[in-house]
């Protein structure tokens, strides 16, 4: 009985969490759409720009190195097998499509979770612990509007950008490998990649980037808002934001990929 009860309790907790996430997502989206860059509300855009620099620009070095390394690994691993069949130039297809459709967005998401997802939840949780969120509410300001919206706007703009950069460095690293094993120039490699890639591949990668970005911001903020206890709670909420974000991003990746496989051929 106690096993059933504890499983039930855990299930209710998870369902409750998903519900909270959905409510926050809905409100966040509504508030974000209300922000008009051409009228008033300068503060939101100023903060959004700061966030863009933080989420986007500053994560580029790490992201490019990690994506580049992954592109190289892909080329090496597939090269080892493809060599047996004498189909080495299939490396170009393999690296190009898998980076654009799958690995580029996923790696960008994981790097951004590590850098920004954790930072977002730590920042929001600290704001809750130090009564700053209460102060916002007491000033008749909506914490979601003030805290989440700038981050969300920033994420929606920067996540596709950093994903594109990550994909590019992955493909480029694959090209370096191809250059030495296939006797083709880097330019030829890039031309072949452009020929192979369909608009569908690129768009599905960018859609994933937007979905992953939304998950990272919303999970980070929600974990921050749900912080309990004092300063030690901040650490807990950061850890849980990272774990839940990675879990949900990979789950969402599966759903997106399945969707594209069945409905967008």
């Amino acid at each position: 009985m106690s096993l059933v009860a504890s499983v039930g309790r855990a299930t209710i907790r998870q369902v409750e969490y998903v519900g909270l996430l959905a409510i926050q997502f809905w409100h966040g989206l509504r508030l974000s759409l209300r922000v008009n860059p051409f009228a008033g509300r300068r503060l939101r855009w100023k903060r959004a720009l700061e966030q863009m620099a933080e989420i986007g620009v500053r994560s580029l070095p790490v992201l490019c190195v990690v994506s580049g390394a992954t592109g190289m690994i892909m080329a090496l691993q597939s090269g080892a097998e493809l060599r047996k069949f004498g189909a080495m130039d299939a490396i170009i297809n393999l690296v190009g499509t898998s980076m654009t459709r799958e690995l580029g967005p996923l790696i960008a998401a994981i790097v951004v979770i590590g850098r920004s997802g954790s930072a977002i939840s730590a920042e929001v949780a600290t704001m809750v612990v130090t009564e700053e969120v209460d102060a916002l509410r007491a000033m008749a300001l909506d914490p979601l509007d003030f805290v989440l919206v700038p981050k969300y706007l920033a994420m929606l703009v920067t996540m596709p950008c950093v994903t594109v950069m990550g994909v590019f460095s992955g493909i480029l690293a694959g090209g370096v490998f191809a250059h030495f094993t296939l006797d083709i120039t880097l330019l030829m490699y890039l031309q072949r990649t452009v020929e192979i890639l369909l608009m569908r591949d690129i768009l599905s990668g960018l859609v994933k980037a937007l979905v992953f970005g939304s998950i990272i911001v919303h999970v980070g903020c929600l974990e921050g808002f749900l912080v309990t206890g004092g300063p030690e709670g901040v650490g807990r909420s950061t850890t849980s934001a990272v774990v839940k974000s990675i879990f949900l991003v990979i789950l969402a990746d599966l759903l997106c990929t399945a969707f594209f496989y069945f409905f967008w051929r």
Partner: peptide, 30 residues
């Protein structure tokens, strides 16, 4: 809430903004 002013126990100033921006915040928003 717009009738109220609240001074919190921990002061609850926004650490990412200057003191001037903190005080100006309600004026800028409302």
């Amino acid at each position: 809430r717009r009738l109220m002013g609240v001074s919190f126990q921990s002061a609850a100033m926004f650490n990412s903004m200057t003191v001037g921006d903190n005080v100006a915040l309600p004026l800028r928003e409302h």
